[in-house]
């Protein structure tokens, strides 16, 4: 792609990831040379239905990894488990060598693994800039006593400057003082992503970043995701659209009926027999779909 060629640094990160992953065997649960996230035996069932049953999976550091699969494959549930928004029945996973099983969601975020949501959670009754400021971690003014004593004004300036910088990057600066509720669906996705970057993450988990985004904004969102990799972050994202997956991901993990069924670079995975039959023969998934969908709705409604 021409615009990629114009940014050699981008090419290098992407190429580096591709080079490292080139020798990795194309099989489910395969070990990676430098994994940032390693999950083992993660299971979660809803009323007898196993929504997630992942025996082993690893995510390569500094790469963009796509998590794909038919509806109800358990991708979002797996996301919720990894980020502490749901509790697994069994399993453990290491993030940067630290055991994350049983760690509450807010602490997962503080440890550098930040997530976004399928149904965007921009706080619509707050201004865009306040949404951004909320993202910053280690704010003294978020402690009650310091807040009362007003010991936060200095830091607020730093936080605001950082927020403005990100807003400029995500082209939201002119919306700074607007309520987030007045933004379009795509702008909310951008805001949510920008806000998550305020936490200074090492790994960004995006749950369907393209859902509900109008085509005009899709390209810009994709560039932003690639930009994360250029800044040295690891990205794991859930996506349905295979064109998007092919365009930006270095590695693809395919889930079906709760398990990882295939892994590999985007081009190869899409020719995989198991993947094709999972997508086409979606008949068995019906029951799972219902459970997966209703769960995410409840979780996001809480």
């Amino acid at each position: 792609m021409p615009d990629n060629a114009s940014t050699p640094a981008a090419m290098s990160r992407h190429e580096e990831a591709m080079r490292i992953l080139a020798d990795v065997p194309r099989e489910p649960g395969v070990p990676k040379p430098d994994p940032i996230l390693v999950a083992d035996h993660v299971t979660r069932s809803f009323g007898g239905l196993k929504a997630v049953d992942v025996s082993h999976v690893e995510i390569q550091r500094g790469s963009i990894t796509a998590l794909v699969g038919p509806n109800g494959a358990g991708k979002t549930t797996f996301f919720n488990l990894l980020t502490g928004f749901d509790t697994p029945d069994t399993g453990s996973w290491l993030f940067n060598g630290k055991d994350l099983a049983g760690v509450p969601s807010y602490r997962v975020a503080r440890m550098g693994m930040v997530r976004t949501f399928q149904l965007t959670k921009a706080l619509s009754k707050m201004t865009v800039i306040d949404n951004m400021r909320l993202g910053a971690t280690h704010q003294v003014g978020e402690r009650m006593l310091q807040a009362l004593l007003g010991l936060w004004r200095g830091q607020e300036k730093t936080v605001t400057a950082q927020a403005d910088e990100l807003l400029a990057r995500f082209k939201l600066l002119e919306k700074r003082e607007d309520f987030a509720g007045s933004l379009s669906g795509g702008q909310r996705k951008l805001l949510e992503m920008a806000r998550s970057l305020m936490t200074d993450p090492t790994m960004v988990m995006l749950d369907e970043p393209m859902a509900g985004v109008n085509p005009a904004l899709t390209q810009s969102l994709l560039e932003h995701i690639k930009g994360l990799r250029e800044q040295g972050m690891t990205v794991l994202f859930v996506e349905h659209d295979m064109d998007v997956v092919r365009d930006i991901s270095d590695w693809v993990i395919v889930m079906a009926q709760g398990s990882v069924i295939a892994e590999g670079p985007p081009g190869e995975v899409m020719r995989n027999e198991a993947v094709i039959s999972a997508y086409l023969g979606g008949h068995h998934d019906k029951a799972l779909t219902d459970s997966g969908v209703s769960f995410t709705e409840e979780a996001s409604g809480t």
Binding site: F46, G47, A299, T302
Partner: peptide, 11 residues
């Protein structure tokens, strides 16, 4: 979730 309720209902 109550004595007879299902765990998932709480969300």
């Amino acid at each position: 979730y109550g004595l007879l309720g299902r765990r998932e209902r709480i969300g």
